[in-house]
Simulated assay, not measured.
Amino acid sequence: MSRRVPEFAVLTGVFLGVSTLVSGAVLAWGLYATVVVGAVVSYPFVAFGIVRDNDPAATIPPRWLLAAGAVVAVAGGVGVVVGDPTPGGVLSAVLVAALLGAPAAAYATRFGADLNPVAPRITVLAGGAAGLALLVAGLATGRPLVGAAASVLAGLGAALYGTERGVDVDARTKRLVAAGGGVVGIGIVGVGVARGGPLGPWLLVGIAAAVVPSLYAALTRARSGGSRRPRRSR
């Protein structure tokens, strides 16, 4: 019975997702609404099945789920751009795609899909650069909240991916990174003060820049330096 519960939950989630897609097509909801509603009704059941399963990778192959998540993410992002083909709409599409694809990417990373051809350290650096770019894009398009949220997902997601893939950062370096994030955040707020005008967007972006490195250090505190458990070879 313990094996049937997670498998039944996954099947239920898939059934609800497919039903939503059919309903959206029949009722002409639009691509964005259909994809988001489908993800909202199906993801919790799939997550429940994963948590309750003793061997999730045997029930749900990581590569299959990653592929499905990528399709959902791309569809959701395209749906946003179709409805709002502006630079701000593109930024919102990035956020939606990241939100929809993050669960599948996290699962694939945790259970070893190993599809990323880029070295983990390069992925971490690329994620940090993307996070900064998204912060700037949020200010440039007048959507600082969207840019900050997308930045957190990109930067923190890449950092946690690197940790899972064996990028070993000692506690001292993490403290320096967290301090550096604080300095960058203060600098961003300082630029906003110097430019004049509403300070709210600059304050929001500065907080995001300061919080992400500290949040990463806190989430990976138990795996700093020698305290991290050795990974099994694949």
Rank of each mutant, 00 (worst) to 15 (best):
M1C: 10
M1W: 10
S2F: 11
R4V: 14
P6A: 06
P6Q: 05
P6L: 02
T12M: 11
V14D: 05
G17D: 03
V18N: 00
S19P: 04
L21W: 12
G24M: 04
A25E: 13
V26E: 15
L27M: 15
A28R: 15
A28Q: 12
A28P: 00
V35A: 03
V36L: 13
V37L: 14
V41Y: 06
V41P: 09
S42D: 06
S42Q: 12
F45R: 04
A47F: 07
I50G: 01
R52S: 13
D55W: 07
P56L: 06
T59E: 06
W64G: 14
L65N: 07
L66K: 02
L66Y: 03
A70C: 15
G76H: 06
V81N: 06
V82R: 12
D84T: 10
P87V: 05
P87W: 02
V90E: 01
L91N: 04
S92T: 09
S92W: 04
A102W: 09
A104F: 08
A104R: 06
A104C: 13
Y107K: 08
T109E: 12
T109K: 01
D114A: 15
N116E: 12
T123L: 02
L125S: 10
A126N: 11
G127Y: 00
G127S: 11
G128A: 07
G128S: 04
A129S: 13
A130Q: 05
G131F: 06
L132M: 14
L134Q: 07
L135H: 13
V136Q: 13
A137F: 02
G138K: 07
T141A: 07
G142Q: 08
R143D: 08
L145T: 07
V146E: 03
V152S: 10
A154G: 04
A154D: 01
G155N: 05
L156F: 11
A158L: 10
A159Q: 12
L160R: 15
R165Q: 13
V167N: 04
R172D: 11
K174R: 15
R175E: 13
V177W: 08
V177I: 14
A179M: 12
G180T: 03
V183P: 01
V184Q: 04
I186T: 12
A194M: 11
R195A: 15
G197M: 09
P198H: 08
P198N: 05
L199Q: 11
P201N: 11
W202D: 04
L203H: 02
I207S: 00
I207R: 00
A208C: 11
A209F: 02
A210Y: 01
A218H: 11
L219D: 05
L219N: 05
R223E: 14
S224G: 05
G226F: 09
G226T: 12
S227V: 10
R229N: 08
P230M: 09
R232T: 14
